[in-house]
Amino acid sequence: MLVIKALSSFGKYLELMKKTFSRPERMRMFFKQYIKEMNQLGVDSIGIVLLISFFIGAVICIQIKLNIQSSWMPRFVTGYTTREIMLLEFSSAIMCLILAGKVGSNIASEIGTMRVTQQIDALEIMGINSANFLILPKIIGMITMIPILVSFSIFAGFIGAYATSVIANVITLEDLTLGLQYDFKEWYVWMGYIKSIFFAFIISSVSAFFGYTVEGGSVEVGKASTNAVVSSSVLILFADIFLTQLLS
């Protein structure tokens, strides 16, 4: 029964995506929405991305120094490990899990409220493809902004690591810098960007699906918002395994 329900939902999701990915009726309206969504979903998330990444960068640095670093390990290991964690997992996968909570609930509740207050019906009556008008700018906007957010996250994580060195003297600046630069592989940055683009698609499209298919009132909008966050997060985790295996 659960499998049938899941397959039915997946079918509806594919139908919605088919409706979403069509040529916008008015390019000028599409670009207006696109800019608005980039601002709402991307620019408005920069603050939380910087804050969380800064502290996680600092905490990783302290933990590695306290628990891994020892006299028989090279002195760059703390900086090196901090960099690899930030590049490979935190700034792409974990940051997208956090964004699934912030952006996913925002998308699901916004579209869900539009559904229950008949705003989507109003678009349909006007002869507008509501899925294309509402969802496509969100997906494209999120995909556009995610590499920028990943870059900010990596940058803020490194600043956090440096803060532990400068403020708390956990590690010397030289050792940290050596570690951050040691055996740097550019591909790892690209891998983070590629993974994050897939995750951005999952967050925006899955959340939009839950919002768009709401039936009922405010309670259902709340449930849709929760389901959007849970489903996006689970799908990101599964996708992370496949993408990591594929890209490594």
Partner: peptide, 16 residues
Amino acid sequence: IRREMGMIFQSAALFD
């Protein structure tokens, strides 16, 4: 044909 229609909803359905 939908572009020839105007509709006023019970809740007004204005875009917030």
